[in-house]
Nucleic acid binder design. Structure first.
Length: 376
RNA sequence: GGGCGAAUUCCAGAGCGGCCAAAUGGGGCAGACUGUAAAUCUGCUGUCUUUCGACUUCGGAGGUUCGAAUCCUUCUUCGCCCA
């Protein structure tokens, strides 16, 4: 994998680049749709490519390990073959599940003992095991196994957690380097910066992560309960240290505004469940603001979902019709909203990229931010 | 023509003398959602009031009672059964 820096914004740390993988080139900044179980919820492959223009999607180690399981994935020849998406993919390690499954998991130095949320069965994830699983899944980018503490964690907890994540990272790299890809193309391992909202911890973590000289680096443990300003501050602290000749991935973020703020601070890759989950729940993101599609005000609005929207389907359906679908609990509602939101997120990243290349990112961003947060 | 049963807040449907503005579900209205245990969850849903609270409701009318959605009389409507 190779990152090629193309342009740097003169007034900020925003940058445009190309990330070359064995499954194709990714234009950065990029938004990566989340497909936890190997499927971007509600979006079929054809729409993912033609309407959304997805360049890379995510899968999740924990979820895919539980279902369909390693036997099936191995027999399929990896996740690309299994789900038919032949562009780049990235797998999250299950570190986020360590965070979100609090209560049915136990953390130790060795790893994390989970109870399956599906059947309650007991499983242990160690850094070594996670690497082995990610090899079987076969994503182009594998994420290190980390602990993601909440944004409200105490300094002491954050410090200990960071230490554990770093020790796990050494074990991840050791195993990663001892093993080979299973399907004939390369895989890269991205380490993850932690440190919660504490600048000195973030710096320390970024130094440690940078020392690994990985193909790309991730910033984790943000947008998990801390104020947005703290998040931006942490991104700045960390990006001063993470190498500029490697892509930077801000994990799990975020709102359209979060993404522009991240890009401005030098982030290249983003992922988030918001466009799909919130879409399924009736929220639409547009360049003019946020729409709660269930609201009564759209009942008789027969204008297109978004007249100048990023995908065909924005002009195919009207707001009144989409509102009707949500009220009738039609499956199609969530599908349309998911495709629309993803197409919008991809458009936003691509637009940011164009403005970075054109050299007017800062002014474009300044006029977009208030628009994007408007409640329609 | 005779007999029996039922009518409850937008709908369905509990309640059967005070703890009832009235369970529960649906519908409606609004909100939340950030590396997906989520096509999920939360709140409100008689009127007025910021709150406390006040007021008007349980087919219509009239009664019994300190007190009625709940008991009685009658009327209306709708079911079912017998002619």
């Amino acid at each position: 994998m190779k990152y090629q820096l193309q342009h740097t914004d003169p007034k900020s740390n925003a940058r445009a680049g190309l990330l070359h993988t064995d499954h194709g080139v990714i234009e950065t900044p990029i938004f990566m749709p989340v497909g936890t179980l190997g499927s971007v919820k509600g979006v079929q492959l054809r729409d993912l490519i033609e309407q959304v223009s997805a360049q890379i999607i995510l899968g999740n180690t924990y979820h895919l390990y539980l279902r369909p399981g390693l036997e099936v994935l191995k027999a399929a020849g990896g996740l690309h073959k299994f789900n038919g998406f032949d562009k780049p993919m990235l797998t999250d390690s299950g570190g986020f599940q360590v965070f979100s499954l609090t209560g049915i998991r136990k953390l130790t130095e060795e790893g994390c003992e989970f109870r399956s949320h599906i059947d309650g069965s007991k499983h242990i994830f160690t850094p070594e095991k996670v690497m082995d699983i990610e090899r079987v899944i076969g994503a182009d980018i594998m994420m290190a196994f980390d602990e993601c503490p909440p944004g409200t964690a105490s300094y002491q907890y954050a410090k200990e957690s960071m230490g554990l994540t770093h020790r796990w990272l050494d074990r991840c790299f050791k195993r990663f380097n001892e093993t080979e890809p299973l399907y004939g193309y390369n895989q890269s391992l991205f380490p993850i910066v932690q440190g919660c909202v504490y600048p000195d911890l973030r710096r320390q973590s970024a130094e440690f992560i940078a020392s690994k000289e990985a193909d790309g680096n991730a910033i984790g443990g943000l947008a998990v309960g801390e104020p947005a300003e703290k998040m931006y501050e942490m991104i700045e602290v960390v990006n001063e240290i993470l190498p500029g000749d490697k892509p930077r991935y801000l994990m799990g973020v975020g709102t359209p505004v979060n993404i522009l703020e991240g890009i401005e601070r030098g982030v290249d890759m983003f992922d988030c469940v918001m466009p799909t989950r919130n879409g399924r729940n009736g929220m639409l993101f547009t360049k003019d603001g946020i729409i709660n599609m269930r609201n009564k005000k759209w009942e008789l609005d027969f204008s297109p979902i978004e007249a100048d929207g990023a995908c065909e389907l924005d002009r195919t359906y009207t707001k009144a019709y989409l509102r009707h679908l949500f009220h009738a609990k039609e499956l199609l509602a969530g599908q349309i909203a998911s495709i629309h939101n993803l197409a919008f997120y991809l458009w936003l990243a691509q637009e940011a990229r164009q403005h970075i290349i054109a050299g007017d990112f800062a002014s474009w961003k300044a006029q977009m931010v208030p628009r994007l947060s408007t409640r329609l």
